[in-house]
Amino acid sequence: MVKKATQDRAYITSIGTVAAGRVSVNKAYKMYVGGAFVRSESGRYFQVEASAIAGSADPEVVNIPLGSRKDGRDAVLVAKNAHEPWAARTAYNRGQILYRLAEVLESRRSELTSSLTRAGSTAAEALSEVSASIDRAVYYAGFCDKISSLVASHNPVSGPHFGFTMPESMGVVAIVAPEEPALLGLVSTILPVIASGNTAVVIASRRDPRTAVVFCECLATSDLPGGVVNVLTGDASEIAPHLAKHREVNAIDTWSADDALRTLLEREGSGSVKRVRSHDGRACAALRDEDGQGLGFIEKFLEFKTVWHPVGI
């Protein structure tokens, strides 16, 4: 939450305290757009507090960019431009990149875990969420080149024609990510979307945007082309309605929104016949277990293209 001025004083007390020993280098948390880490064009920020961890050198409060409508539009532009080349890669190649992501997540296990604990998870919860996230990345890595085999069809039309139906990615998918689980929520909603060739503009958890940024650092070092996943921080209620209205956004996947925002997004999406998917809090919680993954998550963001050709000599 944005801290009120009165609350801010609590942190001012530490000013003037001299650190014992080495002075640590604090990380600036930025949004991830087009493969680069950027601040909000608006220059605005919000602050997130951390539950203090004994012995941690991390600051108790960090500044997070408060994304704007313009940040949303910029992200859609790069996501749109990234779509064609990403979808044109072979499914095998997309799988290789997602597997690389799993490797990087594993290597950053401790950083991800401590980020989750800073946002309030217990150490055990954080560990199990990170493990589940890594396993889920492996799951979707291996799914990329299976999708078509599972959902495509040869159509036995009654006539001298050869006909088949194949899945294609929709294009740009806007995701209002679950508030929690912060990491597993991102992994579970982004990976099935990009596995088939979509690109994504994601509004990260407002509660724990730091973990989202650490996750983006994993994406940035996974050979994932810039622009395939773009993660904004800030208020979904501010950014998402503009994404729902945006003609270059083909689908919107809403995980954390109250009824009013969910209805607004569905309504704004109708102007361009957007594919709108809405989930409730129960669905967010279900992401934690085995039901939180599967073909259904991929299928919701596929178009089906049917091709006919005469057969003859």
């Binding site: 069809s153 159509n155 036995p156 039309v157 009654s158 006539g159 024609h161 006909g163 139906t165 089906f304 049917t306 006919w308 050709h309 005469p310």
Partner: peptide, 11 residues
């Protein structure tokens, strides 16, 4: 090389 073909088995 065809047009306006329809079939119940064809999405």
């Amino acid at each position: 090389n065809t047009f306006n073909k329809f079939d119940p088995s064809s999405p």
